[in-house]
Design a protein around this nucleic acid. Structure first.
Length: 292
DNA sequence: AAATATTACAACCGCAGTCCC
DNA sequence: CGGGACTGCGGTTGTAATATT
């Protein structure tokens, strides 16, 4: 497959965007909408590659972006989601309204990743922490690569995947099969969902009979999502996680109650920070090995 | 005040999935 | 069905700003 030449073309601007370029891109997208990134620069009169325009828009210029000041709640959620999902920044970002995958990724790499490793963090002012040993970045990388791998592997949860992989296909992992008695018990405990439907759904999941579209429909039908423009990709990712769930009582009760909105951050309108934190607190939340 | 180190984050790179002819 | 184009993603790099020596 051919790769786009992107910014390597002669005459293309690279590096930091100017205010003028931002303005041109913003006004063009406002007038014509997103998409067709490859041809967008030409049509908009920008000397940038489409990729660069897309990135600039998604990570910086979009009007709904919330910038800076990641709150404690958000930080905690990022940590928990990272424990759960690994470096799938887009999925994590999908649960943090107004945050971009790039921002979360940067925040993790500069702040939270160090915390997770038990290193002193520079969050806020670096004056607040004892001065770190003097190392250039290259030296630090060299040292980290030699020294941190074994201990990090022992202390950090295993990362699911390192390569970019979209979740448009539903992978059905080995799902811990719930004994029917137990299942009926948990299903009956739910007042929000029909137990027989749930059981049928789980059977489908176990047998690999549910694809992303079905899952999408189920989300729409059962969990209050109605907007057809919803991000199927994010839902698919959600479906993957959903399929891995043992569907215990806490999950059924706490998470899937109905709602009218269908934003990415709140499937079923209850996946707000609190409920998601509750969800992640569940002992039954699957290990990462079940998700990939 | 100057030099050096460190941090934060915007931007780029390249792979992989999907679309479409 | 095959292959090129397009798009999205995570990893990595470049660099301005800030802190430290």
């Amino acid at each position: 497959m051919g790769r786009s030449p992107c910014c390597s073309k002669q005459g293309m601007n690279r590096g930091a965007w100017t205010a003028l370029e931002d303005k041109i891109l913003t006004s063009y997208i406002k007038a014509h909408g997103e998409g067709k990134w490859r041809s967008l620069p030409k049509r908009a009169g920008l000397k940038r590659c489409g990729k660069s325009c897309r990135l600039r828009w998604l990570n910086y210029l979009r009007p709904d972006i919330k910038r800076g000041n990641i709150s404690g709640d958000e930080e905690e959620l990022i940590v928990r989601l990272h424990n759960l999902l690994g470096n799938r920044w887009s999925l994590i970002a999908g649960r943090l309204p107004g945050r971009t995958d790039n921002e979360i990724k940067n925040y993790w790499n500069t702040t939270l990743g160090k915390k997770a490793k038990g290193e002193p963090t520079s969050t806020g002012s670096s004056k607040e922490t004892s001065p770190p040993p003097t190392k250039s970045r290259a030296k630090r990388r060299e040292i980290e690569s030699k020294t941190t791998k074994p201990s990090a592997a022992a202390t950090l949860p295993p990362v699911i995947r390192t390569k970019a992989t979209r979740l448009t296909k539903v992978l059905v992992p080995t799902i811990p099969q719930i004994p029917s008695d137990d299942y009926n018990q948990t299903a009956n405990a739910s007042s929000a969902t029909n137990p027989s439907e749930l059981q049928a759904h789980q059977t489908q999941l176990t047998n690999g009979q549910v694809n992303a579209g079905d899952c999408n429909n189920n989300l729409n039908n059962n969990y209050g999502c109605n907007d057809e423009d919803d991000d199927i990709e994010a839902k698919s990712g959600f479906c993957n996680a959903f399929q891995s769930l043992p569907l215990d009582e806490a999950m059924i009760n706490a998470t899937w109650t109905g709602g009218n909105d269908c934003d990415l951050e709140d499937y079923g309108a209850t996946l707000d920070l609190d409920s998601l934190a509750f969800l992640l607190d569940s002992e039954e939340w699957p290990s990462q090995g079940n998700i990939s």
